[in-house]
Amino acid sequence: MDIAVSVKNVCKNFMLGEEEVKVLKELTFDIKKGEFVSLMGPSGSGKSTLLYLIGGLDEPTMGQILVNNKELKTMKDLEESIMRRRELGFVFQFYNLIPNLNVEDNIMLPILLDGKNPKKYEKDLNDILKLVGLEDRRYHTPRELSGGQQQRVAIARALINDPDIIMADEPIGNLDSVTGTEIMELFKRINVEKNKTIIQVTHSENAAKYGNRIIRLKDGRIL
């Protein structure tokens, strides 16, 4: 089976005032294509930091990260950005939508940033809106949507460029249990029907059950 993400001896240190804090300590693991992996662990264990490192949004202090067999460290800003547009999709706990753009505009951002003609993606947009159940909310701004609906928009945005890997940082952490379940069902469908690799950070055992592997972290190490 092909490897989607390969993490080798990754360390990440932060400066907290004068003191250096070791957040991740020599982590090594692989994630195969099509896997639905949950990163779990107590607060401060480094799971979100790990997710952002895999997404190229931060740099490891030491070690190697390969995404789709491309080493992030050797990539320039533009290459990393292009990879984020085409091969990765992010979903965050607080949705992170642009407040003054409507649902359609928010979803189409990766397309626009990639310099593509948004008109050619009309069909994809409609399909994704249908998948996330927001066809009738396409012209609404985020502040006119509920938390669950906003998270669906974030998922739709992550899917629009048809990336191989979706990364979700506590995607249901800010939602009630019913909505959370709906969102996790959606992720499961995306994983199964579209064969997307999903890496999620979660505190919830229930959410983790939707995946097929759990990586548990504690004090910066894999348990």
Partner: peptide
């Protein structure tokens, strides 16, 4: 700042 970070997360380069 947050909006810029969001855009970065969905693939906006520094140049962009």
């Amino acid at each position: 700042r947050k909006s810029f970070a969001i855009l970065t997360s969905v693939g906006m380069s520094r140049k962009q």
